[in-house]
């Protein structure tokens, strides 16, 4: 079945790591630059994130996301470099514009934080199956109903896409033009929406019944179909990250 998840199967250390540790890493990437606002710290964090992406061998997959992010950041850098209030130290002129050091440094600070957070999320998303992530959250106490809702979102879109394809086949096999220019395609697409949406609502009803007969709402403790994906060093990683955050805090307060 097709899937909308960005997960790519690889056999690396990062893939072997449990999803919760990766969530800890996101927390780390979020907090450290806030606690220690120095741009050097941010650079270290970015380099760390990029190393992890390289180790996980998913760097190529991040390129489209990063290109998009860079595009946005570029506008931030230009605007802040030119117009930030408090801009004093001139770096250089081009034409009627002057680029200032203060604005530029500020913009770089923002840029590094954004890249840092984006790469932390990418590490999680690209190396973890959505179902694994949800399952480990449920093990940690998330309600299994909410977990189910999250997983359904990942399933329902590919499902709607494939039912769209099925109906298109039914239509064109009975003489309705669905290929060709935009107008023909729109004309074929609009009548699709009804059956596709109604169809997936009908599916929902059936799925609810199927879940119910298999005891989805039963009160007893639940077991899991899959064995928990254990990572040997998860405790070490998680405590290490917490310790790192605590050190950063201490540094900030004491120094």
């Amino acid at each position: 079945m097709r899937s909308i998840s960005l997960y790519t199967e690889r056999n690396t250390v990062i893939h072997a790591m449990d999803p919760i540790s990766k969530l800890f890493y996101i927390l780390f990437a979020l907090l450290i630059p806030i606690i220690l606002p120095s741009i050097k710290v941010s650079i270290v964090c970015v380099v760390l994130g990029l190393i992890f992406l390289l180790v996980a061998r998913v760097f190529k997959k991040t390129i489209p996301v990063f290109s998009f992010v860079f595009l946005i950041l570029l506008t931030v850098i230009i605007i802040q470099g030119l117009f930030r209030p408090g801009n004093q130290t001139t770096l250089f002129h081009f034409g009627p514009f002057t680029l200032y050091k203060e604005g530029l440094m500020f913009a770089f600070g923002v840029a590094f934080r954004v890249i840092n957070i984006v790469s932390a999320f990418m590490i999680l998303i690209l190396t973890t199956k959505p179902s694994d992530l949800v399952e480990s959250l449920v093990r940690k106490g998330l309600s299994s109903k909410i977990g189910y809702v999250i997983i359904s979102v990942f399933q329902i879109i590919p499902e709607m896409m494939s039912s769209m394809e099925t109906i298109t086949d039914a239509q064109r096999s009975r003489g309705m033009e669905t290929e060709g220019n935009l107008q023909t395609r729109m004309k074929a697409f609009l009548p699709l929406l009804g059956p596709v949406i109604l169809g997936s609502l009908a599916n929902t009803k059936e799925r609810a019944m199927a879940l119910e007969v298999r005891g989805f709402n039963s009160k007893g403790p639940k077991t899991y179909l899959l064995e928990e994906k254990k990572y040997r060093y998860s405790k070490v990683v998680q405590w290490g990250i917490l310790l790192g955050i605590a050190c950063a805090l201490a540094w900030r307060i004491l120094v």
Partner: peptide, 22 residues
């Protein structure tokens, strides 16, 4: 030929009726 054009000369009853009825 598009499938729609071919539909004038060749008809197919799908294996699964739910795939055909809309």
């Amino acid at each position: 030929r598009t499938a729609a054009e071919l539909a004038k000369i060749i008809g197919l009853v799908f294996q699964n009726p739910n795939d055909q009825i809309f």
